[in-house]
Design a protein around this nucleic acid. Structure first.
Length: 366
DNA sequence: AAAGCGGGGCA
DNA sequence: TGCCCAGCTTT
């Protein structure tokens, strides 16, 4: 990122002019009193500002000063917080108020490190208070600022990694207005929530459009980069290997959309995690309610083995079971269709990853 | 109904 | 540094 002093000033002016025209009228924007800024920031975490407004006003009426909060009745405090959620925030508020009374003589601390030492205040909230209440040029880096900044400068730092904060801090430190750091931060927050939104970028209304590198290329929605993988969901299945007298396996075709669309698979039934554990530890399969729809009635189920298969967002835990048909089992024409078939050579068809593993398991068994 | 989410705490 | 949390919003 290389911007001349002139460009930095132009950037600040555009942003702050926009803020002066469009800023949300919020009660805590009428003050720079650190106590009020603090409460508003904590309340605004994970909560929409419109929801926060009445809570903030009730809070200030009940606890006008930090010392009132430090001696607040726990039950009354939680009652006031009722509906805001994340109740540890309220408990931390009181703890921090007590810390301030004890360690800072009841005066809200001014140094960034002191602010951040308080219970419930992390890097973001500390910087927000320092900039808004005390006019310190500290970028308050939250998701909005990272999104806006990454788009303006096409920053490829992965915002799901904690260490990427540093990159954003460096860029924003060069840009932040030393005259109006608090407004600078709040302008970017408002911009992020109303214009430069996660799934849509309203660039026509954006005061930073002329500075925005991703906009110039039309790549706005590629930013921010976020690789954090979605937590894999654990799913449990029983897979049934049913073989006929000719040695052919019974296969079903998966739905034409979704995961492994149109691939062939042994019939699968869902299993609970507990049942899965039970089967794996016992090495025994019970017949109860586990059977899928099969073309023949089954006389016996034998546990073959279990394995896991990892997809991008799912982790399949599979118990492979051999299903033995009734004695007089016979193959008939109506067993065949577009969605079902019998086959010996499974390598001849598109076979999904888990099925390959199952087939190998069955082959090795012999 | 289920998934996504942002900041702080904590290991 | 990375996981987890709690509960609202979005899909």
């Amino acid at each position: 990122m290389k911007l001349s002093k002139k460009q930095v000033t132009a950037f600040q002016n555009s942003l702050l002019d926009w803020y002066d025209q469009h800023k949300k009228p919020l009660p805590w924007r009428k003050t720079t009193e650190p106590y009020q800024i603090w409460i508003s920031e904590i309340m605004s975490q994970q909560t929409q500002v419109e929801t926060v407004i009445p809570y903030f006003e009730r809070f200030m009426a009940k606890y006008p000063t930090l010392r009132d909060l430090a001696t607040a009745d726990d039950a009354e405090l939680l009652k006031l917080w009722e509906g805001l959620g994340y109740y540890s925030r309220a408990r931390n508020l009181k703890l921090a108020a007590q810390e301030i009374v004890t360690n800072f003589d009841g005066i809200f601390p001014e140094h960034l490190s002191d602010i951040q030492s308080l219970k419930g205040i992390g890097p973001y909230t500390a910087a927000a208070i320092a900039s808004i209440a005390y006019g310190q040029p500290e970028p308050a880096i939250d998701g909005n600022l990272m999104r806006v900044t990454s788009r303006v400068f096409e920053m490829t730092d992965d915002i799901s990694q904690a260490k990427s904060r540093k990159a954003f801090d460096e860029v924003l430190r060069k840009l932040i207005s030393s005259e109006r750091p608090g407004d600078f931060n709040q302008a970017l927050m408002d911009l992020g929530s109303t214009v430069c939104k996660p799934k849509i970028a309203l660039c026509a209304a954006c005061p930073l459009a002329e500075f925005c590198q991703s906009r110039a290329k039309g790549t706005q929605l590629n930013f921010p980069i976020k690789t954090k993988k979605i937590k894999q969901k654990d799913l449990y299945f029983t897979a049934f290997a049913l073989q006929n007298a000719a040695g052919e396996y019974y296969l079903e075709k998966r739905p034409e959309s979704g995961l492994l669309a149109n691939m062939w698979t042994f019939p699968l039934t869902k299993l609970s995690g507990e049942d899965f554990e039970k089967i794996v530890t016992d090495g025994a399969v019970s017949n109860n309610g586990l059977l899928p729809e099969l073309p023949e009635s089954i006389s016996k189920l034998t546990y073959v083995g279990n394995f896991t298969h990892i997809f991008s967002h799912q982790k399949w835990h599979i118990v492979l079971v051999k299903a033995q048909p009734e004695e007089h089992f016979q193959l008939t024409e109506n067993h065949l269709s577009e969605e079902k078939m019998w086959l010996t050579d499974l390598s001849a068809i598109p076979l999904a990853g888990p099925q390959v593993k199952m087939f190998e398991m069955l082959t090795k068994e012999k």
